[in-house]
Structures are given as C-alpha cells and as structure tokens.
Simulated assay, not measured.
Amino acid sequence: MAMEAAAQPVIKVAAICGSLRKGSFNRGLIRSAVQLCNESINGMQIEYVDIEGLPFMNTDLEVNGAYPAAVEAFRSKIREADSILFASPEYNYSLTGPLKNAIDWASRPPNVWADKPAAIMSAGGGFGGGRSQYHLRQVGVFLDLHFINKPELFVQAFQPPQKFDSEGNLIDPDTKERVKNLLLSLYAFTLRLKNIS
C-alpha cells in the first residue's frame, strides 16, 4: 500500500504597504504577491493588512493596558501571522510615516513583531526604494524581526520596460518572477526558523 504524502505546511503572511495611496506601486507589488501566491505557491497564504485607519502613535490612548480598537485589530493580525511581507516606499531617503506609525503601535508591550521572519520589497525612482529597506532593517533589529537577506527586491518603477499600469498593477513579467522568488525564499526561511515540517 502506497504511503500518502504529508500535507504541505501552510504559513500565514501579513502583508503591509507603507503607502496609503490607492494607486501605489508598492500596493501593486502586494496585489501581485497575493495573486502569485494563489496561482503558483502552495503552502502560503497572504493577507493584506491595511494601516490607514491607525491613529497616530500616542501612549495617552493606552487605557488600562488596552489599545484603541483599530490598533488592537492590527496587533492581532500581526500576532497571528507566521511571517511579514513589507512593501516599503521611500520618502526622503527613509521609510514612510504611516509605516513607522504601524510599526510603533505593534511594538508596544507585548511586542507582536518579535521573532517573526520577514521580507521587504519596494518600488520607486532611482534606487527603487532601497534606502527605505535599509532603514526598515535597522528598525527590525530592535523589533527582533528576522529579515531574509536574499533576494533583495528593488523595483525601479520609472525605467523601461514599463513595470506598472495606470492603476498601479504590476505588469512586468520579469518583476513578477522576482516577486515570486522573494516569496519562495520567505516561505523556506519561515519553515526553517519556525521549525515547521
């Protein structure tokens, strides 16, 4: 009698975009990641977690150890995820205000980022958002996030060939393949770090 193959482990990924703009290229990267995951990556589920509704970080809003409802909901999504996927635009050589705000809220006691694997992708001009990624990695040291080192994904959005359509959707096949490779690396790293088999 043939032995049945073991079920492939499923990891839950929380995807966060640092841009609030609906047509953001970085949000387009996340949409592409979700689509690629659904079509061709077994064992990974990506959920986009919106940060637009979070209030500005203010410890006066913490009452008797509880956080505002939007913050509690966000923290719960991060806590439940096996790993994190950031799409980090570059504002003034760094990560965005909304992303830093979300990071700070989820780092409040208990720090729900701690010991989670993570990956970063970014799209923009020049360096393709690279400086934001390196600043985010610095922040991750304190958060106890474990970022994959390779592959790095910087998308130079304004250089030919055209990478995104007018609504911010990723249309470039080569970039889609790079997103897929990033996801596969995050999947393998998550299994290894979490000792899932």
Results as ranks from 00 to 15, higher is better:
Met1Leu: 04
Met1Trp: 01
Ala2Cys: 11
Met3Asn: 13
Glu4Ala: 12
Ala7Arg: 11
Gln8Tyr: 13
Pro9Ile: 11
Ile11Thr: 00
Val13Gly: 01
Ala15Ser: 15
Ile16Glu: 02
Cys17Asp: 02
Cys17Ile: 10
Gly23Tyr: 04
Asn26Val: 01
Arg27Ile: 07
Leu29Ala: 05
Arg31Met: 07
Ala33Arg: 02
Ala33Gly: 01
Gln35Glu: 09
Gln35Arg: 08
Leu36Ser: 01
Ser40Val: 06
Ser40Asp: 04
Ile41Thr: 07
Ile41Met: 12
Gln45Met: 07
Glu47Met: 08
Tyr48Cys: 11
Asp50Lys: 04
Glu52Tyr: 12
Phe56His: 15
Phe56Lys: 08
Phe56Tyr: 08
Met57Arg: 03
Asp60Asn: 13
Glu62Cys: 10
Glu62Thr: 07
Asn64Tyr: 14
Ala66Phe: 14
Ala69Glu: 14
Ala69Ile: 14
Val71Glu: 00
Glu72Met: 04
Ser76Val: 09
Ile78Asp: 02
Ile78Tyr: 05
Arg79Glu: 11
Arg79Asp: 13
Glu80Ser: 07
Ala81Arg: 02
Asp82Pro: 09
Asp82Leu: 04
Leu85Tyr: 10
Ser88Asn: 09
Glu90His: 05
Glu90Asp: 12
Ser94Tyr: 09
Ser94Trp: 05
Thr96Gly: 09
Thr96Lys: 04
Pro98Lys: 03
Pro98Gly: 12
Asn101Trp: 11
Asp104Phe: 08
Ser107Gln: 08
Arg108Asp: 14
Arg108Phe: 09
Pro110Trp: 09
Asn111Leu: 06
Ala114Glu: 03
Asp115Arg: 15
Pro117Gly: 09
Ala118Asn: 06
Ala119His: 02
Ala119Pro: 02
Ile120Glu: 00
Ile120Gly: 00
Met121Asp: 03
Gly125Cys: 13
Gly126Asp: 13
Gly130His: 11
Gln133Pro: 06
Leu136Ala: 07
Gln138Pro: 12
Gln138Val: 15
Gly140Lys: 04
Gly140Phe: 10
Gly140Trp: 03
Val141Met: 07
Leu145Gly: 00
Leu145Trp: 01
Pro151Trp: 13
Glu152Thr: 01
Glu152Val: 00
Phe154Arg: 01
Phe154Met: 11
Val155Lys: 00
Phe158Cys: 03
Phe158Ser: 03
Phe158Asp: 03
Pro160Lys: 07
Pro161Val: 09
Glu167Met: 12
Ile171Cys: 14
Pro173Asn: 05
Asp174Lys: 15
Thr175Cys: 05
Lys176Cys: 10
Glu177Phe: 08
Arg178Lys: 12
Leu183Thr: 02
Leu184Tyr: 00
Ser185Asn: 08
Leu186Gly: 14
Ala188Phe: 11
Arg192Ile: 14
Arg192Phe: 15
Leu193Thr: 05
Lys194Val: 09
Ser197His: 14
